[in-house]
Every structure is written in structure tokens, then in C-alpha cells.
Nucleic acid binder design. Structure first.
Lengths: 111, 111
DNA sequence: CATAGTACTTGGCCATACATAGTACTCTTT
DNA sequence: AAAGAGTACTATGTATGGCCAAGTACTATG
């Protein structure tokens, strides 16, 4: 029970939400996502991102196509499926509610 | 990978933050916390709350004293330790940063 | 051909939230 | 005083997601 640990726990599920949102804005591949997440100070490593993408694809929320690259191996470019779009909307709702609930608790000052 | 699941994941770590905040405002016992969490629409069951309180106590973030009750068994009234207060402040920071990061991602509209 | 860089994969570990069942104490009812 | 209901706390086992670390495969460069 240390801070680092809780930080890890706090981001659970949120990553999924962020990834889906990034993909919803246009075709991207893993490194694009990592760049954007890093820019937003959400540090993610490959070993976290790739399995997540695979899970999302298996759940039919994402699909991808291979695209050749000039500098390295081909890349998987991801897009949202219809199912994925719906899921993203639900997630956005859940997230907003969660923020609201937390706000309710933490905005109260000492009795 | 269904919505319910992700909702469960999203609240991970946040519960800890909320509990610590509730306790920071004055002595409370488990049922008080459950009431407040429920009021904020954060549904928690006993089997989740009690182990969490035990973990927090073992980490020396909380301490409790037994208080007799007129209607039932004695209750554990919890308070924050110094360590717990510090931890709570760190958590608040982490949470704010996380919200900010997520905001950065999700506020971008379609390219 | 060897090396470096990029992209993706896999297996094992850990902590939290949850479901479920169980213990222990007090008060009320009869 | 015995039985039952209600309250407070405990214990066990499961599932999930994020992380570390090692590994594969392809391309470009020297």
C-alpha cells in the first residue's frame, strides 16, 4: 500500500477510455497513441498498450488494417467499430459520473 | 470486456481516496462511510469496504478505537494518522493530475 | 553480413474489488 | 431464559487490468 501502487490502480479502466477516444478521432497505430498519452502525462509502456489493444480488438470494439511503413515493419492502424463507438459513449458517461461522485465526497470540508 | 467490468476497474484506487477523505473529516465507522458513499452514488458492499479499511490500518494510514454501541456490537471508529493525512494529500494530487490528463485526451474533437 | 531501430508479442506477477459465507455481539419477543 | 432479528466485523476465493521483462520479426544502414 504505497502511493505508486494506488496511482497504478487509479488509472485502471481510464486507459481504455483514453485509447478508445484517441482512436475515435482517426486512424492511428500504437506509437501514435503512446505519443499522445505521453504528451498528456499518462505514461504507458508497450507491455501495457499492446495487450489492451488486443483485448479491445477481441471484444470487437476495434479493428485494424496493416499498413506498410517506409522505416521499419508494417503497422497496425486501428479504427473503432460501431460497437466500439457505443462503448466509448457509455464509458464517457461512466467517467463523468465517477468524477461527479468523487467531487461530492472530496468537496466536503472538515466538519 | 464489458461495460460493467470497466466500471469496476475505473473505481479502483478511487475508493481508497474517497474513504480517506471521509475519515479525514472526523471519526466515523464503517456504516457511516457506506451511507456517505451510497449518497454519492458510489455503491460499495461490506466485502469491499472492510478489507480496504484493514489494509489502510495495516499500512498505518488509519487507526481506530472501539466504541460501545447501544444497538448491536461495538464499533470501530476510524481516524487518520499523520501518515494517512500526508497520503491523502498525495492522492488528491494524483487524482487531480489524472483528471487533467484525461481531460486533455477527451476534450480533443475529431480531426 | 552485422548492427541498430522500429513494431508487435508473450508469460508471469501483483493489487484491488467483488461475491459469498461465516462469526460475534446486543436487543427484543415470548 | 431461549429464540430470533439486526448490526458489525471477518475470511476465502475469483477475476481483471496494468506492469515488467524477455523475445520475435521486419527494415534500413554501415
Amino acid at each position: 500500500m504505497n502511493l505508486e501502487n494506488t496511482q497504478v490502480q487509479m488509472r485502471k479502466g481510464i486507459l481504455e477510455y483514453c485509447i478508445l477516444h484517441i482512436i475515435s478521432r482517426g486512424e492511428v497505430y500504437a506509437s501514435d497513441m503512446l505519443d499522445e498519452l505521453t504528451a498528456a502525462k499518462i505514461i504507458v509502456v508497450e507491455g501495457t498498450l499492446y495487450p489492451l489493444l488486443t483485448r479491445l480488438k477481441n471484444a470487437e470494439l476495434l479493428e485494424y488494417k496493416w499498413v506498410e511503413s517506409k522505416s521499419g515493419p508494417p503497422r497496425k492502424y486501428y479504427t473503432l467499430t460501431d460497437k466500439g463507438s457505443k462503448f466509448l459513449r457509455s464509458l464517457a458517461e461512466t467517467w463523468d459520473e465517477l468524477i461527479h461522485s468523487t467531487q461530492m465526497i472530496t468537496s466536503k470540508s472538515n466538519a
